[in-house]
Design a protein around this nucleic acid. Structure first.
Lengths: 231, 231
DNA sequence: CGCGGCTTTGATGTTCATCAAGTAAAGTGG
DNA sequence: CCACTTTACTTGATGAACATCAAAGCCGCG
């Protein structure tokens, strides 16, 4: 996906309805004045664990991964962020250093506003604060549920689960290009790169999916669901 | 621990400073009028996944576990809640049915207020809303970090990690009574009951800890930390 | 064009879950 | 309060699931 560079006004932003729906006109004008747009190419690191976050980021276009890095070069992807999601909201309130790293899986366009402005808005607009609370709750519930679902599955179930995840949740199609490498896929579902590849090959041999590099086509969705559920 | 039954006023509550510090006197009076105290014995189920939550709970005394139940009788403990923590805040805003189950690990005293009142307070008191946001962020950051730390460890490391967790975080002592059964311990750190027991025995044989039923005494804390870090 | 990272497959070994079986502890009903 | 049942705890043996190691082809990039 190619992200556009045009300097957009928050007033006309199609995503206004999602995050900033409860802001008044004058508040939105402040947001617009303060707003910065930043473009990141696929693979670029947006922020590193431990960074001071003085701005609040919001994904307009693209795809982003949130991850934690382990000691021995092993990292774990916590979540994948799609447009209309915010990034690092939690840390904004609890501590000023980021608890995880962020990088672009696809070319991505991010908007950001100063944290202080966000806090000012929160404190002066109750409905806005309430909306943020709700979004934050949703986001974290999803992450925790996801982690739970991954953990209770065997490897084959995990691969099936994540293919369905990409198909249903991210691309809304039975045919899509994986936005992640095999290694990253492994990091999403707690397994090794080799086993990701092995099981993908098995699924191909069994006629469940078709693979061509990063392109995945689901041939037998029902079977995939069964594998996801029972192993 | 024996929880007291005396009907306490929120005005004089020692935990007022934590959760309700930014409420004005008149708001606190409303809370106090609406407040209910409920006592739960060790082992009692407080709420089940899927329950409608019309009240917002807050742990005054005791210890509580938050968990999810799997299909084949296997459940997973998401977190242990100590006094001053709230319960089920997320679901209050995103959906009305609870996403997990809650039960008492020790005799516990819970306070609760009506969700509607909480929402009213949030909407009329910006600083209060902001405090809740911060607490919510902290809570979820802890849960996610914890899950990450468990997952990257081998079994011996997990046992060491959780013993340190109880010692440092919950009981602040090198000697304590486990509030959980071996089975529950297994559910906290993603392993089987048998292996929990096995590894505890190993630690005992190696002189790292002493075990007497539920009572754990840490003999070699430095070694325990090493095991937690390296495996 | 050569180097490093990503991908793939196979062989090997280890970690861990499962099964089994027995003891201790704790709740239950007469 | 004691026999009875159930639940928690414990240890050992076995096998399966999975990580690690190794080796080779592939692709993009300087």
């Amino acid at each position: 996906m190619q992200a556009s560079f045009s300097p957009n006004s928050c007033i006309n932003c199609p995503f206004r309805s999602v995050l900033f729906k409860s802001l008044r006109e004058d508040e939105l004008i402040k947001v617009n004045e303060n707003k910065q747009e930043q473009f990141f190419k696929r693979g670029e690191i947006i922020a590193k664990e431990g960074d001071e976050m003085t701005r609040f980021f919001y994904l307009r276009e693209g795809l982003i991964k949130i991850y934690k890095e382990g000691e021995n070069r092993r990292s774990q992807i916590i979540s994948i962020t799609t447009p209309k999601d915010f990034i690092g909201l939690t840390n904004l309130f609890s501590s000023n250093s980021l608890g995880f790293s962020v990088s672009a899986l696809e070319d991505s366009l991010l908007c950001s506003i100063n944290s202080d402005l966000l806090i000012t808005l929160l404190k002066q607009n109750n409905q806005f604060a309430f909306d943020i609370l709700r979004m934050m709750g949703d986001t974290y519930n999803k992450i925790i549920t996801n982690s739970f679902e991954i953990n209770r599955r065997h490897l084959r179930g995990r691969i099936a689960y994540i293919i369905i995840y990409f198909s249903e949740y991210i691309y809304k199609s039975r045919e899509f290009d994986l936005p992640v490498s095999r290694k990253e896929m492994a990091e999403m579902i707690e397994m090794t790169t080799e086993n990701v590849i092995r099981i993908l090959s098995e699924f191909r041999k069994d006629g469940v999916i078709e693979i061509d590099g990063k392109k995945i086509t689901i041939l037998n969705f029902e079977l995939l669901q069964k594998i996801s559920r029972f192993g």
